[in-house]
């Protein structure tokens, strides 16, 4: 190494401390983040009658979080994310059905299966446009649905997978009919995976993903192996979706073919967009809004609630997602003392 380049590194640059503060600041916990999690856990005591619904929200939030990892942080548009949710659900359901009722074991198995599928299919997404990606992801989900339908000896086909019986969580907490164990269990899984995701997106790896999303050409020109990074995050996202599917299978003790539905893939995208893409809490917020809407609307108009969901989507796009996002950050930023870097 020559003197000229050495000189650049060894001298402690006066701006270095400020630079460190700026970089670290973007990863600092904001007050409202604590509030979100405190509220989520407080709900166990405060909303004892809503625990089944809250469990669904937690699972949907995890599913949307997994989509956020690829859509918000890597720019991959997927119309078939249900493939991983569904695979995870069937994997966990089958593991339990064949006698291994420990929930955590099921989660691991589901995450593993989904990760393998995600890894294998991620290579199909490296080439091609948004449209090709949409079609390939959609195609894979539909193929799995056909497969699950056909192999009914294993999956129960159109009748769904029945006979899923779960052992107590950690050998102590039995699943109850009020959904108390289910919600606490799902929420804890969500929290752990959320913390991991938060770490990842604020890591050097996460920074490189943002770069790939913003400008793949330049990302390559600073020496980033774009394909390797995309494969990695897609695999991780698939595992997350698989865990969400597993939670759903374990807490409802049932899996049906519609886990692979196009509607499910579309819904999760809607959930994420409702909550906002690319800041990790979008999935949680979106799941809350979506399930609350679904719960309220289907009590009012039964099977037609999808109309209103569609209307929300249309309005959201017409008004502009970024404008709504800007409004939201205007509300939160002043309270976090302008911490945005």
């Amino acid at each position: 190494m020559t003197e000229a380049t050495m000189a650049v590194t060894t001298a402690q640059a006066p701006a270095a401390p400020a630079a460190r503060r700026l970089l670290i600041a973007s990863a600092r916990w904001r007050w409202w983040e604590f509030a979100v999690w405190i509220a989520a856990f407080a709900a166990i005591v405060l909303l004892p009658r809503q625990l089944l619904l809250l469990n669904e929200i937690a699972i949907l939030a995890l599913f949307a979080l997994s989509l956020d990892l690829i859509l918000g942080y890597a720019g991959i548009v997927s119309l078939g994310h249900a493939a991983f949710f569904g695979l995870g659900a069937y994997a966990a359901g089958l593991i339990a059905k064949f006698g291994y009722g420990d929930p955590l074991l099921g989660l691991l198995g589901a995450a593993g299966c989904a990760a393998v599928l995600g890894f294998a299919t991620s290579f199909l997404l490296l080439r091609g446009s948004d449209l090709t990606r949409l079609m390939v992801t959609l195609g894979i989900a539909l193929m799995l649905q056909e497969l699950a339908n056909r192999e009914s000896w294993l999956t129960g086909g159109a009748d769904g997978l029945q006979g899923v019986t779960m052992a107590p969580v950690l050998g102590r907490f039995d699943f109850d009919i009020f959904g108390r164990t289910a919600y606490v269990y799902s929420l804890c899984v969500l929290l752990v995976l959320f913390l991991l995701a938060r770490r990842v997106v604020h890591s050097p790896f996460g920074l490189s993903l943002r770069a790939v999303k913003l400008n793949p050409l330049r990302a390559r020109a600073v020496g980033i192996s774009v394909n390797v990074r995309l494969v990695a995050i897609y695999t991780m996202s698939a595992a997350y979706a698989g865990v969400a599917g597993a939670l759903s299978a374990q807490t409802t003790q049932y899996v049906s073919l519609d886990v692979f539905d196009f509607i499910r893939s579309a819904d999760v995208m809607l959930v994420l967009v409702l909550g906002g893409v690319g800041y990790l809490y979008g999935g949680i917020l979106g799941a809350l809004i979506f399930k609350a809407m679904q719960d309220y609307l289907s009590s009012v108009t039964a099977q037609y609630w999808q109309f209103w969901i569609g209307l929300v989507l249309v309005i959201l796009v017409l008004v502009g997602r970024d404008r709504i996002g800007a409004l939201f950050s205007r509300i939160t930023v002043p309270f976090s003392r302008g911490a945005r870097s």
Binding site: M269, Q306, V317
Partner: peptide, 12 residues
């Protein structure tokens, strides 16, 4: 997103 919204509305 927009056209999925239209589909949902139409179907319902």
């Amino acid at each position: 997103l927009f056209t999925i919204g239209i589909v949902f509305m139409t179907v319902s």
